[in-house]
Design a protein around this nucleic acid. Sequence first.
DNA 1: ATTGTTAACCTGACGGCGTCAACCTGAGAC
DNA 2: GTCTCAGGTTGACGCCGTCAGGTTAACAAT
Lengths: 247, 247
Amino acid sequence: MTTRRVRARRGEGALLREEILRAAEDLLAESGSEDALTLRAVALRAGVSTPSVYLHFADKEALVEAVCMRVWGEFGRMFRENLGGDPFLALGRCGRAYARFALEHPVQYRVLMMRATAGPGVPPAAAECFRHMVDAVSACVETRVLEGDPEELALGMWSAVHGCVSLLIAQPSFPWPRDREALIDHIVRVAGFGTAVYSRLPQTLPPSADLAAALDDFGARLASGVASGVASGVEKPRGDEPGGAGE
Amino acid sequence: MTTRRVRARRGEGALLREEILRAAEDLLAESGSEDALTLRAVALRAGVSTPSVYLHFADKEALVEAVCMRVWGEFGRMFRENLGGDPFLALGRCGRAYARFALEHPVQYRVLMMRATAGPGVPPAAAECFRHMVDAVSACVETRVLEGDPEELALGMWSAVHGCVSLLIAQPSFPWPRDREALIDHIVRVAGFGTAVYSRLPQTLPPSADLAAALDDFGARLASGVASGVASGVEKPRGDEPGGAGE
DNA sequence: ATTGTTAACCTGACGGCGTCAACCTGAGAC
DNA sequence: GTCTCAGGTTGACGCCGTCAGGTTAACAAT
């Protein structure tokens, strides 16, 4: 891609913007490191001189931000694909899809979430993405599985899933379990049921023995409810995701 | 601190290492930005020429790593201060202390957790810190509040708390609730009870209505258990933390 | 066909960064 | 006094983001 790009026709200068963005994305994905995302490297790959990038991006930060908007867009699309059906199950599907996407695109996720963010205000693509999360939570509040302010609950659940994938990406040396898929199921379930239980908790807790007993009973009741056939209308666990955890 | 440092006596060259580390820490804390952590700035602040840093650190990464080790040490000390008493309450205290420390030292936390980590293997200070987490979880497994592999459970709970503080630090523009303390309580409780509930869940869930009812009953049972005075031995919520959530 | 305008892009330079090879210098042993 | 070498310094290299100014080619008007 070192070949000199042919100059765009009049009025089509904006084409370069797309090519630069594509070059930046490719560079990020292929190198696997954000340090490789250099104005010089991007320009070279786009077949253009370095300062030409400034024709379409105010500075490097603006270019990176533009790349991030693409990623937010992908997250938004992913949420949209996973909505529908029982709200609590859909929430679990979204969480798992989020984690999977993040782990499949670790560099992009790094740049998106672990960079020092500049300006105030949430960019539209990010806001839309967050709105999907809130909507998914709201649906669960309507079925009374969750209780509370959907926005706050969504932030909490997002925190949990983000924490898991960001630690996996940034601190891979820790003794993570072999099975990443199971880990994600774990964290999604913890986030989902933790949020569900949270609003029902009293201010002060009973001693551990009583707490453990209450937890055991809760689990037994769920199991018997499912076994006795009350579970009509429940989605079947998908074949590729045994247990359908978190759903 | 621009004054030229007096040369160390023979055999005391290692003094410079401490001064450089201190300069780096101060620079990070005062500037509030990791970009300000420059070899040139550090050297200037230590009253020494730039390449002198290489007398004690292989490269910039090694210097940053050394700063991180200090932070891990602080985290470890913080855990040690919050252990003891009922294990599940201690776990909540640790989680809250972790989050508070992170939010009070956002730049250090950034560098520690959101940097592209280089070498393989967990450094000793980090391993010790993680061991504290695992120990705190193990104690909860012994009282039967939690079930499962302590290491995996600890990773999950760490993920949740880390996710919350790292999002707060890296994405401050999102509609976070006014009360950060309450948010931390929220996430710590979600992580704690989510983890407790997780191991009791059946593979398939009952429909939302039954699930909501079971959750309500669980909460009612906890509340009545506390109200009926069974709660002997439970720590009182601390005055500065109404609700003692998560504990 | 020629010219003028201007969008689209390039050249060359600046200061700052991490890093390195080579040099200096002064504290302390003799 | 002099020698040694730990404990530094000097100056340079290549890469980075950024910018002022120059160049070139597509198109409209003539």
